[in-house]
Design a protein around this nucleic acid. Structure first.
Lengths: 217, 217
DNA sequence: TTAATGAGTGAGTGGTCACTCATTTTAAAA
DNA sequence: TTTTAAAATGAGTGACCACTCACTCATTAA
């Protein structure tokens, strides 16, 4: 289901913060306010006094822990990129799950719903990451080198099995993954641009139809 | 060919400026310098004194025609969005061109090469537009409502003919276009992320193979 | 009870920036 | 040549912003 509940980065982020006992309540408020404001207005458009006001804190308090505004951004995004995001990546190599993907359609449906729900549930956080990464090739490389292998590895197992069962074309894994993610990404962009029609279910069925046709041997 | 020459937005932009006789040379220099600097450093990071210096003009001159920096940004991007970009959209409804797309593969190859070349040749200008649109839903809607119909209309003619000739699946135009653009977009993202392998030609062939398989009846 | 610690404070600082305006330059009209 | 209107100038201005620092105060150790 597209509308199913999905783990929100924000929740993991907060749990992560509460688990860290060296972070005071005010510092936690600062990190949460930063994440919110960066997502709402963008990093540049957010002033440190904005953050202090939203966190209910003096501006100096912001600078007690974080030497610069940029360091604050890193402090907000680093845990998301290192702990939170990977732990949210669906574990397709999980044996139990692998059983369920007895057909190509079932597998594609699962991935589609999972990824769409994940992105929709975490739009704001993803936006902040994209903003940081957009004009910085080095950071782009860092992020992608952390995420890409996980994605490929997660999917490799299922793809192999589907191929053995004669349910999947004999294309290289890279190409299959790129095809799936391109179609899902295209749909998400369409949604972000408000081009999606009223009937989400119908569009979902169409996209899945395209993918099934494309990836059937 | 991916490496073929492609019209650059910048060139059309300059031609557009020279055609407008009510724009003084200094005002033209200001618009050109703005586009360059916005693309190089981003809008926020570009100061009006930067623009004046680059244009070889006093800062007051910048404000003679444009009352705010934001108005200057609009003045730079408006012609690109209204005149330049549409005139650069490949005219697939052109009769001569339609003759050439006698096969689905020929059509897809043409679109792929055209769009990839266009984006690569105009990365900087596209970046400026994306930057403006990223945190502003209204502007996003404005831009998309100007661009989307053109794209759909341009392609509708060829798609109809291909379908009549039995060369294209009987899916709705929207879905076909979304599929094509998703795969091309995916490849561009892959390139932007430095994930593309050394062999561009091979990847191009693979993507086209996927699209041909997907869109053949 | 006193001393030490460190999180928190907020007025302050230097610097930058978007924007203004009194003045000068330019060039076309008279 | 003189007049005139528009274009251009650039020093100036107030607002804002990232960041600092001298100080407060609650908590904990001695």
């Amino acid at each position: 289901m597209i509308t199913m509940e999905h783990p929100r980065i924000r929740d993991y982020f907060n749990q992560n913060l509460e688990a860290a006992q060296d972070v005071t309540p005010k510092q936690r408020a600062i990190l949460q306010a930063s994440l919110d404001l960066f997502a709402e207005k963008g990093f540049q458009q957010t002033s440190t006094s904005d953050i202090a006001r939203r966190a209910g804190v003096a501006e100096g308090t912001v600078y007690r822990r974080y030497r610069t505004k940029e360091a604050l951004r890193v402090a907000v995004l680093a845990p998301i990129l290192t702990h939170v995001a990977p732990s949210l990546a669906s574990d397709f190599s999980n044996d139990e799950l692998r059983q369920r993907y007895s057909s190509l359609r079932a597998f594609l449906t699962a991935i589609y719903d999972d990824r769409v729900a994940f992105v929709l549930a975490n739009q704001r956080e993803i936006k902040v990451i994209l903003e940081m990464v957009a004009f910085d090739q080095d950071r782009r490389d860092t992020v992608i080198r952390r995420v890409a292998p996980v994605v490929v590895q997660q999917m490799a197992g299922v793809l192999k099995q589907l191929r053995q069962d004669g349910l999947l074309v004999a294309w290289p894994d890279d190409l299959v993954i790129q095809t799936i993610l391109s179609m899902i990404g295209g749909e998400l962009v369409r949604t972000a641009l408000n081009l999606a029609g009223a009937n989400r279910q119908r569009e979902r069925a169409q996209i899945l139809e395209v993918l099934v046709k494309t990836l059937t041997p």
